[in-house]
């Protein structure tokens, strides 16, 4: 695949994702206007999907910083401490 074709395929995919929902067949639509609920579900989905990643990422970042601090504080002992 050439670069131009990949770009074209990728942008077609991106357009498909953001097409208005009216363009999609909907299995169980009731016909009433539920844009507000739809948006709320989208927000809830985003919150639930991204929050755990942020929390775990934050914890890992904190632990790594902590490990660096401890290591630099013990710098002088480093060679003796590591058995390798």
């Amino acid at each position: 695949m050439t670069a131009a074709r990949s770009v074209r395929a990728a942008s077609a995919g991106a357009v498909a994702v953001v097409l208005p929902r009216a363009a999609w067949a909907c299995a169980v639509c009731t016909g009433q206007d539920d844009a507000a609920v739809s948006l709320a579900i989208l927000k809830g989905t985003a919150l639930l999907s991204l929050l755990p990643l942020a929390l775990i990422g934050g914890l890992v970042w904190f632990l790594r910083r902590r490990a660096r601090e401890i290591e630099s504080a013990r710098g002088a002992f480093r060679e003796q401490e590591s058995p390798r």
Binding site: V37, K43, G44, L47
Partner: peptide, 25 residues
Amino acid sequence: MLIFVVTEAMLFAGLISAFTITRSS
């Protein structure tokens, strides 16, 4: 406790998202 707090934060996130959805409808 930090790990426990992660779980608890997700508990409240679940409640908040449920509340937002119900309120919007």
